[in-house]
Amino acid sequence: MSEQKRTFVCHVDDLPPGTMKFLPVGKQGIGVYNVKGDFYALSNYCPHRGAPLCLGPVSGEVRPGDEPYELTWERDQEIVRCPWHGWEFEIATGNALALKNHKARSWPVTVEDGSVYVEGV
């Protein structure tokens, strides 16, 4: 079995929930996120106009409530918002919230012996 390519990110303790570590690999770099204990990696390239996506704030999702015009805040820390024009992406999948068929590239992340790795780069 051939060894899969992987890149060491950091020790798990250095990437607490709600934070991101930037990995300067490839053309744009990759942001590795800890979302409530789960780890995800997103390309630092926004599919809208190419902004450095991982510079954007980690956020939540504004949703309509049950009553007309009611707003609720959901999925806190699960969303990253592009710093340029505000498109929002689900960190876990890279999917854009407002537009189907638009997606930030993502990679699997593994944790082994207390170390965080991005797989495939």
């Binding site: 809208h48 999702e61 504004v62 949703r63 309509p64 007309p68 015009y69 707003l71 024009h85 505000g86 498109w87 929002e88 854009a96 919230l97 407002a98 537009l99 638009h102």
Partner: peptide, 15 residues
């Protein structure tokens, strides 16, 4: 502008 202003009107899920 729709994807950008979604947070203002999340009750409009389509373009």
């Amino acid at each position: 502008d729709w994807p950008i202003t979604r947070v203002e009107t999340p009750w409009v899920p389509h373009l």
